[in-house]
């Protein structure tokens, strides 16, 4: 759905803009803002993407959709590995995350990684919340460009 290059550039500029227009004390709020942005976009995107799908059976179905179709539509590739403990925690592993591929190939610039992960985290969270799965999405990167998204689902 999103053309790769303009989307990447737009995202980079988004991150840069939010950080440049905030004062030094608000550093953490930049990440929170980006995540909220991603959340809102995720909400809308998932409506569009699931418009013509059949109904999802269960939670696992929805996660598979996120890993395959959703990821494909947004980042033009699929999630490489999905793990779960069946207790509401899912770990999505992307070995070549699109926003990080151009940053570095190892540990360099790792301190800048969180900025570029905030929006994708929000995207996943928005998508899942819209599907009815309340969750928290966190991310971790230890060797770029691979990164792991961890989804913790609220147990009712």
């Amino acid at each position: 759905m999103a053309d790769e290059v303009p989307f990447e550039f737009l995202h980079m500029e988004l991150v840069a803009h939010i950080h440049n227009t905030s004062t030094k004390e608000e550093n953490d709020t930049c990440i929170a803002k980006l995540e909220s942005l991603g959340y809102r976009v995720g909400l809308s995107l998932i409506e569009r993407f699931t418009k013509d799908c059949s109904r999802f059976k269960d939670e696992l179905d929805m996660m598979k959709f996120i890993c395959k179709d959703f990821w494909n539509l947004v980042y033009k590739k699929q999630i490489d590995n999905l793990r779960t403990n069946h207790q509401g925690v899912y770990v999505l592993q992307d070995n070549k995350f699109r926003f990080l591929t151009q940053l570095s190939n190892g540990k360099q610039y790792m301190e800048a990684a969180p900025k570029y992960l905030a929006f994708p985290c929000g995207l996943i969270r928005g998508a899942l919340c819209s599907l009815g799965i309340n969750c928290i999405v966190t991310a971790e990167v230890s060797a770029m460009p691979a990164c792991k998204f961890q989804i913790q689902i609220q147990r009712l």
Partner: peptide, 26 residues
Amino acid sequence: GFPHNIQAKALYEQRQGRLVASGITS
């Protein structure tokens, strides 16, 4: 449901003075 803003923030993991992992947490 969940609030829109979960106050995400960056997370840096250091070991022996060097940055080994970073990420997002709330």
